[in-house]
Design a protein around this nucleic acid. Sequence first.
DNA 1: TCAAAAGTGTTTTTTATACACCCATGC
DNA 2: GCATGGGTGTATAAAAAACACTTTTGA
Lengths: 229, 229
Amino acid sequence: MVSQQEYGSQEKHLLAVDCVIFGYERGELKLLLFKRQLEPEKGKWSLIGGWVEPNETVEQAAERVLLNITGLRRIFQDEVKVFSAPDRDPGGRVVSVAFYALIDIKSHDKELVKQYGAQWWPVTKLPELIFDHAQMANSSLQKLREKASFELVGADLLPPEFTITQLRQLYNSIFSREFDPGNFRKKILSLNAVVRLDEKDTLDSKKGAYYYTFKKADEIDVSVRIVNS
Amino acid sequence: MVSQQEYGSQEKHLLAVDCVIFGYERGELKLLLFKRQLEPEKGKWSLIGGWVEPNETVEQAAERVLLNITGLRRIFQDEVKVFSAPDRDPGGRVVSVAFYALIDIKSHDKELVKQYGAQWWPVTKLPELIFDHAQMANSSLQKLREKASFELVGADLLPPEFTITQLRQLYNSIFSREFDPGNFRKKILSLNAVVRLDEKDTLDSKKGAYYYTFKKADEIDVSVRIVNS
DNA sequence: TCAAAAGTGTTTTTTATACACCCATGC
DNA sequence: GCATGGGTGTATAAAAAACACTTTTGA
């Protein structure tokens, strides 16, 4: 039986996490990328990663990496997939669990990011990435689209106060398509997940658009479809 | 920087896969479970697992485990999630990647299964499972429901020839609800994914029901919703 | 005054759901 | 002849999509 072999006689593996960090800025969905600081492929662009420690879960490892980079706790993150091709890392056999994370670019620690030589890249114009990191980024975008189809993702990517148009533009950039302004607005408001404030944004339009905030998670209706097909 | 540490100085981990094997028999969705043959928790029920070898991917490890158990190649399988709580396995720190698989119970090697002391259990009446295997089973069922919502899953679970009613009963058991016979039939036929044969099944009904087969994957329309909410 | 985004309303199309009803046949 | 599942048709409801139109205001 496969699992009958003793634990002790088994080969062990280097285990890492890699984080696909999404942000949203000036109408574009972006990814935080790093200049790799160790061989192999030193100097090329990559996702940020970290080793999994013996006393932590892979989720905790990802949280730790995200905290180190952004200074933020309680970031939304979700597992994407395990990448385990034996030769995926020329430096040796490393099995990596990819996570994607959503952050509000404005709220993260820019100093930390700068220290690491990191940079935000629009998802539509990514540079060449090392190893299988491009696959990780692609799979993550797909996962994000799935999530955004079933629930409102703005809470993690937008500032606390936002206009419906900004939310729509975020969705435009996630799905690379143009949502109808009228229909999108109606759909969002029907979800009963946002609250209108009294202030208006007057930067993006002359008339001014009301700001909204997200309701707390426990006040929101569950599982309503947002985007179809 | 998190990933700046040398590869050599890192702790390694025992890495395993666990397989949640779904089958369908006599109107019930079932799981193949095993009497665990090594300590700890020897003799209790569990999923089947195996170690990940240094020269293979986690997907290949799962394929190997499935082949050993069922005698079948090219089984449908999909990654569910990594389970990595440091204390999840009392025998030591083992990180496990859960996979779920779909097989046609009739076509697998019953002798092999018997050798392992394995048994098919209806998903609605599972025994107590070791470690976090119940969580693995739950997450897998959720994943299966997701998949079955967006595409027809019958091809892997049903015999090559099946009636629409059998397909509906499979969906009933996956979603634990009753689909309307008329509407389900119309929906399935509208997908243009099955072909009617000339033979009829006369076991389940007096009038007899036409057998159908699935079209090849590349002949099927992409991404049509089957089940909502 | 007019371009441009905000916001509302209306119409059409599509899809889901509920359910009536005929068919074929073994008992 | 009638109960049973097979199979088709229809009527209603709900949702999505297309798009017209009105409001506001800075340039």
